[in-house]
Simulated scan of single mutants.
Amino acid sequence: MQELRAIYRDLSTAHVADACMRVGVPVRCAPSGLHPVLPGAHVVGRALPAQHSGSVDVFLEALEHAVPGDVLVVDDGGRADRACVGDLVALEAARAGLAGIVIWGLHRDTRELCEIGLPVLSLGTSPSGPASVEPQPPDALEVARLGEHAVTRDDLVLADDDGAILVPLARASDVAEAAASIRDTERRQAAAMRAGTSLREQVRFRDYLDARRDRGIGFREHLRDVGGAIEE
């Protein structure tokens, strides 16, 4: 796991999303409204799921089984009427060595979270905490949801300023290899653009227009022929 985390530290969620498409892994992104409390966040680690039912005890119980480097994935059903994570949970997670917290729901204590420094991503903020407590589901520590996607201990979580993405641990190495190739290609393209070679020149865009007219090929097919990496 430590080696995987090291590999993913230099990959973005965008690289990984494109890589998933390239290697045939379903793209499982968190809802688009998910953002980090502090810009510049980069979180990678094994998922530590927890379903919130109105009490922080589920988070404390999850931390009993945590391994340093895990990412706490909090399922509050995407609720917009209450916050489910605040400064005390974040501080406890930081003390346990977690890499970050990803919340399908809201957070509060924003100033304190910024001071703690543990990366936290959520759908937004609310000063209000839970008004009631419901029974904890039997699988509360086994699976959490991020939007339409189920998250388990078999998933790697990668999160940054663009959101969060889930990768099955069983395919994480394959995805990382493809993502690194995409990243390196895009960096070469950006460097060439700064040196004076336009992106259209690099991808031989006029050749593509001719091929589209004569052979009806799509742009993605053309990019694969010339080694481009803009689209998958």
Rank of each mutant, 00 (worst) to 15 (best):
R95H: 09
L118K: 00
G124I: 08
T110F: 04
V102H: 03
D109N: 06
G97P: 01
L91E: 12
G105M: 00
R108C: 00
L123D: 09
I101V: 14
L98W: 08
A96R: 14
A83P: 07
L113V: 01
E115K: 14
A94G: 12
R108W: 00
D109C: 03
D81G: 11
W104F: 00
S126N: 12
L113Q: 06
A90Y: 02
R79Q: 13
P119C: 09
A94D: 14
A96P: 09
I116V: 14
S122G: 15
A96I: 05
L91P: 07
I101S: 11
V85H: 12
R82V: 11
L118A: 01
V89W: 00
G105L: 02
R82L: 12
G117N: 10
L98A: 13
I116F: 10
I116M: 15
H107M: 09
A90I: 05
L88W: 00
E92F: 02
C84N: 13
R82A: 15
G100I: 11
E92C: 06
G105R: 00
G105T: 05
A93L: 06
V85E: 12
I116N: 12
P119E: 10
G105K: 03
R82T: 15
T125F: 08
I116K: 12
V85D: 13
L91W: 08
R108D: 07
G100F: 05
V120M: 07
I116Y: 10
H107A: 10
A90E: 07
R108M: 01
D87C: 07
R95T: 14
G117A: 13
T125A: 15
V120D: 07
L121I: 05
L106W: 09
T110V: 07
G86C: 06
T125R: 11
G117D: 13
V120N: 01
E92Y: 04
D87R: 11
R111T: 11
L98I: 11
E115P: 11
P119K: 00
V89D: 07
D87G: 13
V102K: 08
S122A: 15
R111Y: 04
C84Y: 09
L106P: 06
A96F: 05
L91A: 15
L113R: 05
P119H: 04
I101N: 10
A96E: 03
R79S: 14
L118V: 08
G124D: 13
I103R: 12
L91C: 13
T125S: 13
V102F: 07
L113K: 03
I101W: 02
S126E: 03
T110G: 06
C84R: 06
E115S: 12
G117R: 08
S126H: 07
A96K: 06
A80H: 14
G124A: 13
